[in-house]
């Protein structure tokens, strides 16, 4: 694997990145089968940066993100280095994890109804988080809850403190969940497709809100999505995952304008957008591999129009043709030797 190479690569932005993943592997082993969900992921996130992990279902994008918080079931086996804000997450005790989750790192989900507790008011849930992590009085926590609802631009915030989750519309619920996540001013916000279930006119509101909050609070954000448009709206940098590996990584504008790896190239061609009427859509033939075994060589090989024997020999190393851009494909020239 290319771990040794990556050690030498200077982290983008700061000297010490906020998040540092090295050779992350996650396998789920049950009695019936073993799934190799993440197969060697190296990722860095600078403080105050927004990274989108883009991938289809089963690519390992959500599992990678949950591993950052050790929010995976017990039967998951995690190996590799996970470092957040200079701390080794793999070495944390349960007690340390409880402080870490919701304190330094917070997470928002696709479905707020499952993330919020249906029997407590929105105000109580935010105040509880503040009290738990900051040890302040109930009054102070409730005042902070009101500030947070105003921060996420919930109209008539004071009245909404007393509302239960089911009394809010989808967009407001999503905002309330963001307020809970931001309660302790996390350095890192993890977002798992938080706008995928929202209507178009509400989705763009929530995306713009997240971008505004990220800038205001200077948070680092890892945003998992399958939607190229969402990545285009919110990301600074994009990492594309396929079969548990990052196949390409780069600044959002450059990656969207001209991806290096055949998989994101195919994905871009297969995404329907304006001006494609009447033309046949380019498709990626076949389907992603089942991850019962770690894919040998390049996992995209069976679907790739440019595949050759060399692709199967070993997992292609990350090659970097220009600063900041990297792709795991033998056809990409390795220009920027850093």
């Amino acid at each position: 694997m290319s771990a040794a190479l990556d050690e030498a690569r200077p982290a983008p932005g700061a000297a010490r990145p906020l998040v540092r993943l090295r050779d992350l592997h996650v396998t789920f082993a049950t009695r019936d089968r073993t799934v190799h969900a993440v197969n060697g992921v190296d990722l860095d996130l600078a403080a105050g940066e927004v990274l989108c992990i883009l991938g289809e279902s089963g690519s390992g994008k959500s599992v990678t993100m949950r591993a950052l918080m050790r929010l995976l079931p017990r039967f998951a086996r995690i190996t590799g280095g996970i470092e957040v804000a200079g701390r080794d997450v793999t070495a944390m005790s349960e007690r340390e994890l409880a402080d870490f989750r919701g304190g330094e790192v917070a997470m928002i989900f696709q479905e707020p109804m499952t993330a919020l507790d249906p029997v407590f008011t929105i105000g109580r849930q935010i105040a509880e988080t503040v009290q738990r992590h900051e040890g302040v009085s109930r009054q102070a926590a409730e005042a902070r809850a009101l500030e947070l609802l105003e921060l996420v631009q919930i109209p008539s915030a004071r009245r909404r403190l007393a509302a239960y989750p089911h009394e809010l519309s989808g967009g407001l619920r999503q905002r309330a969940m963001i307020a809970v996540a931001l309660a302790c001013k996390p350095k890192l916000l993890l977002a798992d497709e938080p706008t995928a279930a929202l209507d178009a006119t509400v989705q763009i509101q929530v995306l713009l809100l997240l971008r505004e909050l990220q800038r205001e609070l200077g948070m680092g954000v890892i945003f998992v999505t399958h939607d190229l448009g969402v990545a285009g709206e919110i990301a600074d940098r994009v990492a594309v995952m396929y079969a548990g590996r990052v196949v390409e990584e780069g600044p959002v504008a450059a990656l969207m304008a001209g991806p290096l790896h055949p998989y994101p190239q195919g994905l871009l061609g297969a995404t329907v957008h304006a001006g494609m009427r009447g033309r046949r859509l380019t498709t990626i033939p076949g389907a992603p591999p089942l991850l019962d075994v770690v894919p040998a060589g390049c996992a995209f090989h069976p679907r790739c129009p440019h595949a050759e024997d060399a692709c199967l020999a070993a997992v292609p190393a990350m090659r970097s043709p220009s600063p900041g851009r990297r792709a795991r494909c033998l056809r990409v020239p390795d220009g920027d030797v850093s």
Partner: peptide, 9 residues
């Protein structure tokens, strides 16, 4: 107008 744009510019 609410459609997200793939072009960050």
């Amino acid at each position: 107008a609410s459609r997200p744009s793939m072009d960050p510019a």
